[in-house]
Design a protein around this nucleic acid. Structure first.
Lengths: 335, 335
DNA sequence: CTGTTAGCGCTTTCAC
DNA sequence: GTGAAAGCGCTAACAG
């Protein structure tokens, strides 16, 4: 069972010889939905087991032109901020017989050499949870690699995308705050050129404008705890007293809450803070964040299905799916 | 530049024809450290650029017997608990020209079909941050796939491992607590059969025994926030008053702190809580956890280097590297 | 249902 | 320094 002489791995020819059949029969025995007699398959399978044979997926890819590989592009900050994503995604992909080739980028932008590797590995498709330039998106088109964007969109090329509705999400939050009597609003936005950042900011500002209560001050952060704190302090310095702070994501909201408390403010007594995402820590008793929870499972399913559809039929039109987040009342805002 | 007729991707033959050279010259032009005249290379490279040619990594793997693929096995809970790991790992691997093939497992154990895929894709090596049975570890040996374990060890087969020293880490924490006068200790341990869980628990209990102050009560949790809370409540119910609670990881410590506060206890005034890992939230102002921070960067570097060494020379002896964590005083314990 | 024959896109000898 | 030929492990027609 163990300690093989460490020779080269068995090939389908070895198995064929051992089983006394043709090499194609070996191939067929391992391919689902292939015409083959049970007897033959048994013979092959037991010979294969004896030799410890496993079909070479790389060689298969070469002939079938299907690598069963999907590139996942994710920025470090996103993975740290939102770890539930990756697992769900990988899990889902493997349920569809696809493997995840992971590319992380320290910076928010995807480096060119990651793309080069993607072309080289002939992935069947890609899912991006990181910032792609227009030119990069176009490259996916040129290379014939179906691409699905997660929580971001693109007007360039034929890209699918799956997003959580920022407009309606922020709408729920802001309306709730307005209805509860908040008047002086501050905003902690995300990074510039970040889809989610821009959209959530705009949605918030628009809603406030529509209510005749424009935001008193806006600061930007980098989606992490520390930048939430800094942004909050800057906000307070600029605006003085505030009733509510609308944050582009949960981690910054948490940072803002901690910063507020250090200033002696009671949340939500003196100040309401709302976030966005519904990540794990948002539920912790110290924060009980009022936020919008993204339907991760459903969004991931959708992204994977959409991608695989386009792998099967590359001519499918681009599609954008928008998911409504769940309003979590929490306890960080007077609602 | 864009909108190719979506024909088949260019091969090295296409490039050769276009450049009017032999196909081997194309191959050589793309392989570093190959004897070739600059003139030839230029010709080839520009023909390649015109055709949008990218060497097929899968075909390369077939002939070179090197896939440049490294399997990463990680459990969902670990990724959520400790997201800094994966990014660092993938990053490091790519710096060495390796790609990460990601496998996540919902359960703590690695499913058999993940291993099957690993064999099929002929990965050059694997890094496991998930629980592997002895038998599974042996399989890596049999298949000639170098394996490095992260924060876990195995006596089976020739496996390398990189760990953060639990014994010394817990030693620092417990000694600190003892020196500060804590006498009644509770412990929130990790899962059974989890290397880190077992080791940290034993280290803690041994240290307490040695001091003549055995733990009053021990509960187990699942490394997440919720189980930390539950374990804390159970602990209190069983032990009554405690001076200190030693938790197997940060997330459970955070859960314990929140639970304690809900019971009206002041942390660290009435009760000290310590964790282990030094993950992001541990630093948050609401917790300021006293903990041991794992040197993630160094550990990851080490794991990658160790793995690649064994890829180059499979006969290298197994090696275990133990890293000392950094003692973070924090403010969740009277120290 | 099974075997035969060509490739898939590349690297690797080995001549030249 | 360059080219020709063989082969990596497999699938995909096509006969039979």
């Amino acid at each position: 069972m163990s300690s093989k002489p460490s020779k080269r791995a068995a090939t389908c020819y070895d198995v064929a010889r051992r089983a006394g059949v043709s090499q194609s029969s070996v191939s067929r025995s391992f391919r689902p939905g292939c015409v083959i007699s049970p007897k033959m398959r048994d013979r092959v399978l037991s010979a294969a087991a004896e030799l410890g044979y496993h079909p070479n997926a790389l060689a298969q890819s070469l002939t079938t032109r299907r690598s069963n590989l999907v590139a996942i592009l994710i920025s470090t900050v996103t993975n740290r901020t939102y770890p539930e994503m990756l697992s769900a995604l990988t899990d889902r992909l493997s349920q569809h017989g696809m493997r995840a080739l992971l590319f992380t980028s320290e910076s928010n932008l995807v480096p060119a050499d990651a793309l080069e590797q993607i072309w080289r590995f002939k992935v069947d498709g890609a899912i991006a949870i990181a910032r792609l330039s227009d030119e990069q998106v176009l490259q996916f088109n040129d290379h014939g690699v179906p691409l699905v964007l997660y929580n971001r969109i693109s007007d360039i090329g034929t890209v699918g995308s799956v997003c959580c509705d920022s407009v309606r999400g922020e709408g729920l939050l802001v309306d709730g705050l307005l209805a509860a009597g908040h008047r002086r609003f501050g905003v902690i936005a995300g990074l510039e050129h970040s889809h989610v950042g821009d959209e959530r900011l705009r949605a918030t500002l628009d809603r406030l404008d529509a209510a005749g209560l424009p935001a008193i001050a806006v600061k930007r952060g980098g989606y992490d705890y520390a930048s939430g704190r800094e942004a909050f302090d800057a906000l307070l310095a600029e605006a003085g007293q505030l009733d509510a702070v609308v944050c582009a994501n949960d981690l910054m909201a948490i940072g803002a809450i901690d910063a507020a408390r250090e200033q002696g403010l009671n949340v939500p007594g003196d100040l309401s803070v709302v976030g966005f995402d519904g990540v794990g820590p948002a539920e912790w008793a110290s924060y009980r964040l009022s936020t919008i929870r993204q339907p991760v499972e459903r969004m991931v399913n959708s992204a994977v299905t959409m991608l695989l559809d386009r792998v099967e039929d590359p001519d499918q039109p681009a599609e954008r799916r928008l998911f409504m987040g769940e309003f979590i009342r929490g306890a960080s805002a007077r609602l």
